[in-house]
């Protein structure tokens, strides 16, 4: 009960009985009206687009807020085939399939190493990695572009995968290190006494225990890779390399009068993230707040 009564009654020594129940109910109603209104503001625009994606473009021009008279799935066909969305989606899946597991693996390994050996060297390495968490991508993108070009990665799938992987590592290491630090070192020692090799201790004892952290990082990195815009804008200029996030820009540029097709394209771009979000919401929120809270 945060701001229960804006027109507060004179403070009475007996709190609850002095409050008329009708005012209380009025306030509750008002509060839910505001909360539901806010929900509409957040979700409404997307519902509008989803509805538009099933209409005719000419109808949308005449009445932007009407309902579809009949479900027009042609828009999706147009976006998928004419607008090359099938290929864009395929590329995005490819990037996700490479970047997410690689970030998970390399970040977990590096983070584990930082908690396993705690010397001045690893301390310095961690500070350097923190720097990577803090600086904006725009601070490094210009020289990075020429690094990618000089390595001959420009114009290939690797030109997007490798920089995305490198950019995902600082936050990944940061997050996983925080998780490994919460695990008791006695577990590691016990496994060692049992004769397990260092690699085995990591793979069979410590890594499985860090599962919540791995899942949080996985959904975070999935979202980041799916949504990335500037990286493909820089390294995926060629049509065949474009993921959905940058492909949709070209689509909008080419078909800007076909609003229904754009709506279908927007829906296709959102849907996989929204479905993942609805199922793994807990980990999405944990992934985005964990780095901040630690």
């Amino acid at each position: 009960m945060a701001v229960p009564t804006l027109t507060a009654p004179a403070p009475s020594p007996a709190p609850a009985p002095g409050k008329p129940p009708s005012r209380r109910r009025g306030w509750t109603t008002l509060r839910y009206v505001a909360l539901i209104g806010a929900a509409l503001v957040f979700v409404g625009p997307f519902v509008w687009i989803w509805i538009s994606s099933l209409r005719e473009s000419t109808d949308i021009g005449r009445d932007p807020f009407g309902l579809p008279t009949e479900l027009n799935w042609d828009n999706y066909y147009n976006a998928f085939v004419t607008g090359r969305f099938g290929s864009y989606l395929g590329n995005t899946f490819l990037y996700v399939a490479f970047v997410v597991p690689l970030v998970l693996l390399l970040a977990s390994m590096a983070a584990y190493a930082l908690t396993l050996v705690r010397t001045r060297v690893t301390g310095l390495l961690f500070v350097l990695i923190l720097l990577g968490v803090m600086v904006p991508f725009q601070s490094i993108m210009i020289p990075q572009y020429y690094v990618v070009r000089d390595l001959g990665l420009l114009g290939s799938y690797w030109g997007i995968i490798v920089p995305s992987l490198a950019l995902g590592l600082p936050f990944g290491i940061f997050l996983m290190r925080a998780f490994f630090l919460t695990l008791p070192a006695e577990l590691r020692d016990a496994a060692r006494v049992d004769g397990a090799s260092e690699l085995r201790v990591f793979w069979h004892v410590m890594l499985p225990l860090a599962r919540p952290g791995i899942l949080s990082l996985a959904v975070f990195q999935f979202m980041f890779t799916w949504n990335a815009f500037l990286i493909p804008l820089l390294y995926g200029q060629h049509e065949n390399l474009r993921p959905v996030a940058s492909g949709i820009m070209f689509f909008v540029g080419e078909y800007n009068t076909d609003r229904a097709a754009i709506a279908a394209a927007v829906t296709l771009t959102c849907l996989p993230v929204i479905i993942t979000y609805l199922f793994l919401q807990r980990y999405f929120i944990a992934g985005m707040t964990a780095g901040a809270l630690k």
Binding site: L128, L131, I140, M141, P143, Q144, V147, V162
Partner: peptide, 9 residues
């Protein structure tokens, strides 16, 4: 990876 693509740039 971090050196080549982040720190050196």
């Amino acid at each position: 990876l971090y050196l080549v693509f982040v720190l050196i740039p």
